[in-house]
């Protein structure tokens, strides 16, 4: 039986403004409109564009949505709306249950205070009660593996240590919906593995939305893929490898791949003769086949 839907996004759109002055002016208008209870209009004002346009998806408990796309595709904006930090301009978002967001690890840390004091600051901001933090503080220190430095000011921590501590606090959340935005990039391999173990552990009871530019990580935990491009959905579905290959396909526009840019060459295949196995320092034979769509006459080979 399928578990209940925890995240439901219907026709979500959001506009942003390119000019700061105008943005502030629209801000005043929106403030006034908001306070009067008037809805914002669907029309774009001068210098505005759709940062998100007509986004639809659902996520159930136990599912993990890998949210991928290039910089500026609208991923972070989408996360901010899901987290309730900013309001949609169109459409509707329904979030059920406790929402935990790993958008910034170590939020509320003060550099001068010690790691231990900052566990309380960070925990309070993430919505823990004092009792909860006191019960979990030892567990957090152990998880972060920084017991030796826990009473040192956080400003002397390395960035990796700060992330460890931040994740260790956040890992104590028991959310129904977990939003993870590119936060695991700084940790070393051992710690990242540990984080994934923790995510695996809570995944069956949680709906996870995972944003990353690291496709191995995405394919490792996602059950669904949402590929975004310029505020629009490019691909949404359960075929993770298809989603990821479409994401890689986006890179064909770069100069290194100019060969494939106009899609003149398709069905490129590399066949290695002795069973696709290539050993170090050994010669091997291979065959390349492709279809050239723009070929008008057969070139002569030497």
């Amino acid at each position: 039986m399928e578990k209940e839907v925890l995240v439901k996004v219907e026709g979500l759109s959001k506009k942003f403004c390119k000019s700061l002055k105008k943005s502030l002016k629209y801000g005043i208008h929106d403030l006034a409109a908001n306070l009067m209870g008037k809805p914002t209009s669907d029309d774009l004002r001068p210098d505005e564009f759709w940062a998100l346009k007509d986004i639809n998806f659902e996520l159930r408990r136990g599912e993990c949505l890998g949210l991928i796309g290039h910089n500026g595709a609208g991923k972070s904006t989408l996360l901010k709306i899901l987290n309730g930090l900013i309001n949609p301009d169109h459409g509707k978002v329904t979030m059920r249950g406790r929402v935990g967001a790993l958008i910034e690890l170590g939020a509320g840390f003060n550099p001068i205070l010690s790691g231990r004091e900052n566990i309380y600051n960070n925990g309070a901001i993430l919505g823990f009660t004092k009792q909860e933090i006191e019960d979990k503080v030892e567990e957090i220190i152990d998880f972060a593996e920084i017991r030796e430095f826990i009473d040192m000011p956080v400003q002397n921590y390395s960035s990796g240590m700060r992330v460890r501590l931040g994740f260790a606090v956040a890992a104590q959340m028991e959310p129904d919906v977990l939003i993870i935005d590119e936060v695991l990039a700084v940790g070393d391999v051992g710690f990242v593995t540990k984080c994934f173990k923790q995510i695996d552990y809570i995944l069956p009871n949680t709906a996870v939305i995972f944003v990353s530019h690291s496709m191995p990580m995405v394919s490792r935990i996602s059950s669904h893929i949402l590929l975004m491009e310029k505020g629009l959905i490019e691909y949404y579905g359960t075929d993770v490898s298809l989603g990821i290959s479409e994401y890689y396909g986006k890179f064909t526009n770069t100069t290194q791949n100019v060969l494939l840019d106009d899609r003149a060459i398709s069905d490129l295949k590399l066949i290695v003769k002795n069973g696709n196995k290539i050993s170090w320092n050994e010669n091997f034979d291979f065959k390349i086949t492709f279809v050239n769509q723009k070929l008008e006459f057969i070139p002569t080979c030497l």
Partner: peptide, 17 residues
């Protein structure tokens, strides 16, 4: 799930009461 989950709805022009 028997426990009723807290539901948050975000949409434009939330009714202001």
């Amino acid at each position: 799930m028997s426990v009723e989950l807290e539901t948050k709805i975000y949409q434009r022009g939330n009714k202001l009461n």
